[in-house]
Amino acid sequence: MLLGGASAGACLSAAATVRLRDEGSKQPHGLILAYGTFHAALPPLSPIVRRRTRGLHGIVQFRPETVRRMNLNYAGSTEAMEESHAFPGSHDLTGLPSTLLIDADRDILRASGETFATELSTAGVEVIHNVISDSAHGFLDRPHSPSFRVGITAVTNWLHERSATTAETVQ
């Protein structure tokens, strides 16, 4: 079983997996997370993200205050925003399954994805982090775009690699 989601669905999938781990329940064997917000507050923008989201690309970006308001609406209260079962970023990620994390190149939310990828790796989770060049938030909703094809190819390749590894383990 695999679990995945994009945008808020990515956070929801990661948070649900943390909850399953914490409850001692069966977790998915892998996570596919696309351009999610995994932190209650948007982490600082790396110089690369800052450069890729300025100018004309900056006009369509979420602002940190907008992200905070969206996250508050999602969590329901400021107290809930600090829960790992709402926003797993900056919490213990040990024991989570192998994860494919995909970010949009020109998306301010990439700051959360980059940070989450580092946190997963630090926790000993096998993580592949792909940034799809020249893409914007929500590119998986645009099936005729080049970014969609690159993103879906990354997912397909990751799934093939996982199935090959699983087949080797079973034999």
Score class of each variant (00 low, 15 high):
residue 20 L to H: 02
residue 95 G to H: 05
residue 98 S to F: 09
residue 89 G to P: 02
residue 158 W to D: 06
residue 101 L to S: 03
residue 77 S to N: 07
residue 44 P to D: 13
residue 168 E to Y: 08
residue 29 H to M: 13
residue 40 A to P: 00
residue 121 S to G: 11
residue 98 S to Y: 11
residue 95 G to N: 08
residue 33 L to V: 07
residue 38 F to T: 03
residue 46 S to M: 07
residue 74 Y to H: 09
residue 146 P to M: 09
residue 34 A to S: 12
residue 146 P to Q: 12
residue 121 S to I: 08
residue 71 N to K: 06
residue 40 A to N: 02
residue 24 G to S: 02
residue 106 R to H: 09
residue 119 E to L: 01
residue 146 P to K: 12
residue 167 A to G: 01
residue 171 Q to F: 10
residue 151 G to K: 09
residue 46 S to E: 04
residue 70 M to W: 12
residue 72 L to D: 03
residue 122 T to A: 13
residue 75 A to S: 09
residue 96 L to H: 02
residue 31 L to D: 05
residue 147 S to N: 12
residue 134 D to P: 04
residue 91 H to C: 04
residue 170 V to L: 13
residue 41 A to E: 14
residue 157 N to G: 14
residue 164 A to M: 11
residue 152 I to T: 14
residue 119 E to C: 02
residue 151 G to N: 07
residue 115 T to Y: 06
residue 55 G to T: 02
residue 41 A to T: 15
residue 40 A to F: 00
residue 93 L to G: 03
residue 77 S to W: 07
residue 112 S to N: 05
residue 19 R to A: 14
residue 119 E to Y: 00
residue 83 E to Y: 14
residue 88 P to E: 01
residue 76 G to E: 04
residue 38 F to A: 03
residue 126 E to S: 14
residue 67 V to S: 04
residue 47 P to M: 06
residue 36 G to C: 04
residue 81 M to I: 05
residue 95 G to V: 10
residue 56 L to N: 09
residue 80 A to C: 12
residue 9 G to C: 00
residue 43 P to D: 03
residue 164 A to K: 11
residue 97 P to R: 01
residue 134 D to V: 07
residue 163 S to C: 12
residue 65 E to K: 10
residue 136 A to N: 12
residue 154 A to K: 14
residue 78 T to S: 15
residue 139 F to G: 08
residue 108 I to D: 00
residue 151 G to A: 11
residue 10 A to P: 06
residue 32 I to A: 05
residue 53 T to K: 05
residue 150 V to H: 13
residue 11 C to L: 08
residue 100 L to V: 02
residue 29 H to Y: 13
residue 155 V to M: 13
residue 91 H to E: 01
residue 92 D to I: 03
residue 96 L to Y: 00
residue 73 N to M: 15
residue 90 S to E: 07
residue 60 V to Y: 15
residue 38 F to N: 01
residue 61 Q to K: 04
residue 138 G to P: 07
residue 105 D to Y: 06
residue 3 L to W: 09
residue 141 D to N: 14
residue 71 N to E: 07
residue 46 S to F: 06
residue 148 F to T: 11
residue 58 G to D: 00
residue 62 F to D: 15
residue 82 E to P: 01
residue 33 L to E: 01
residue 129 H to C: 09
residue 35 Y to V: 08
residue 144 H to G: 15
residue 33 L to S: 05
residue 7 S to R: 04
